[in-house]
Design a protein around this nucleic acid. Structure first.
Lengths: 202, 202, 202, 202
DNA sequence: GATGAATGAGGCTTCATTCAT
DNA sequence: CATGAATGAAGCCTCATTCAT
């Protein structure tokens, strides 16, 4: 077995155990048992438990970063919505097919330690910047109403994260296509009938 | 010092340390040092580390449960919105003034272990039921458009949680009143100008 | 058992094992087995293996430092010789009755690591300074012939250390009184008959 | 590269690392890195870490054994002193030009384990026998005063070892020629002016 | 009740040695 | 012969929990 394969095997085993037992409850013993290698072998490839987890998280964040594209406004209103949909669809698609990754991102990596919190903060910070930027664009294009863009970006991110979090926690949710549609609809139009909302001056 | 005071002192000390260092990085030594009591004393009041955390989380969840009221539709559309606002305001108000609690709820308790995950799931499940119920009511009152109520409830919950999560992580956000207004506006009207959204058929 | 007694028990156990098995071959398990305490107890009193050894060596060096007195020349030639004898006698007396200490000093602590080498160097450096000083005094009093005082001090120290080293290694040597006498005689008069040495111009 | 060269390369690399880091702090990784060979290769030439060190020590002891000659009394008093000088000079010469060996002999090999202690004991035992034999000869020739020959031999050996030990530890000492002269002078005449020593009856 | 010394299970990491290629 | 990935025994240390005073 080549070096890269061994590494991948260990990463996969670690991901699996982390997702099932959580970071702290996972011991090196669990990982190597699952991978079927000796204790020392693990340390041939990783500095320790933290380092494997770190690598998993980095890989996950990279995968997501490549799946989220900046909104290009030049294609008009319909294009913007299509791009929003594409981003949401890509992220949900990737994470719903990598449940262990999903769980690591939304449950295990949260509040682990200052280092990981920092890493997550940077990742979410980048996403929030992109969302905020898109909202501002929409605003210039007269697509989007006047809002506090920072809070609005949080709302969008939060709605997506919560859908995924519930999935990670095992809730039974509609199919991915429905989730994407609803998320989009929700973020674009809100909940209330337009005229009612108008009348209520909310 | 009376029994109840000791207990409260230990709980407060534990909350403080848990919020700063996280559950696993917190040792009994940290808690008793902060409280100024002996090691054995801690075990006179609590079964162990898990039990203190459990109690803190229970208290927090109770506090939040009493602050969230079921929507009463009898007071008409404006009343519904006012009740929504009140709920959001209460929750934000409580948590923003109890930062350690906020951190425990949104960072430390997440992914801790199956037991706590279960507890969180139940709590969020109750909230989601209430939100979903409110959406259905709104739908019957012709206030709310036709949506997948389960996903919509997730979106609402997620938008609120994310705002709080960023606060817990130290982000600089607008004042509470702005947050409440924006959250409400967002959930009620969505982002897009009504006519645009209409035209785009989203 | 009081704190100080526990500590002393652990130190004594450690000394015994170090002397029998050597520093590296000694495990914490050996020390606590001998002391009859649990693993964690050891760490209540010492930071680790190195720390116990360090303390043993410090204690030993202190004990020896208090037993070696600077030579006071005011009491004349006979007094100087008496003081030399007293110093040698004290050191031999202490170490021959503390065989484990003897072994630690002359075998186990040698070449252990830079930190311990440094500590030994300082100790021997202090001794050598005192010896060198004494030789210079003797020279001024016309008791001692003209020599390289640094090398002469090394010779004196070396002769004493070697006698002790062989004891530590289990050699069968004469009684302490004989050792002291011979060491003194040797360092004062050398080996050769005076006239012969004179004639040979060595 | 031929087999013998590889072996020599490994021995030289090991000697270097042992002298710098000490036996226990030296890992096989250090040795093979220095030698530029693979891990398995090391074990083609030596049974293990202990075996290399053992061979180094054996070589060193052999080298010293060939450099120390038994005293031949037939050449008279001056001849005896000349032979003593020659022995000391050879040993100092060899070791001062092989600092790593010096360090291995006087620091690293001391107190390593019973096996090595035994080997050192035998080596020093042989030297002591030779020295003792020489003293007895000197005594018969009326060159040497009446002494406990065993202790006297220890003094001689100790004085030489201490000079070398301080060198190994990095002390700044006079040039080799001075060291040899002083050692000889010291062992032959002692420290005190002859008449003074006589008067003091030491 | 309160104390804090003692416990020992649990998990981490290193590194000398082996062995399939 | 040479290689270097794999092994696993050995030892270290922490910390939640207990219990005698």
């Amino acid at each position: 077995m080549r070096r890269a394969e061994r590494r991948a095997l260990l990463l996969a085993s670690a991901l699996d155990v982390f997702a099932r037992k959580g970071y702290h409850a996972t011991s090196i013993a669990d990982i190597i048992r699952k991978a079927g290698v000796a204790r020392g072998t693990f340390y041939l490839y990783f500095e320790g438990k933290r380092a494997v987890f770190d690598e998993l998280l980095n890989d996950l964040i990279s995968a997501l970063n490549t799946r989220v594209k900046r909104i290009d406004p030049s294609r008009g209103p319909a294009g913007v919505v299509a791009q929003m949909e594409s981003n949401v669809d890509e992220v949900l698609g990737y994470l719903l097919e990598n449940r262990p990754m999903l769980r690591v991102l939304l449950a295990e990596a949260v509040g682990l330690d200052p280092g990981f919190d920092q890493k997550l903060s940077e990742f979410y910070g980048r996403l929030l910047d992109m969302i905020q930027h898109a909202i501002e664009l929409g605003n210039q294009m007269k697509l989007v109403v006047k809002v506090d863009t920072q809070v609005a970006a949080l709302c969008i991110l939060g709605s997506i994260k919560e859908v995924l979090y519930q999935q990670a926690m095992g809730a039974e949710l509609p199919a991915r296509q429905v989730l994407v549609n609803e998320l989009l609809r929700y973020n674009v139009r809100g909940l209330f009938v337009a005229e009612v909302a108008e009348r209520l001056k909310v």
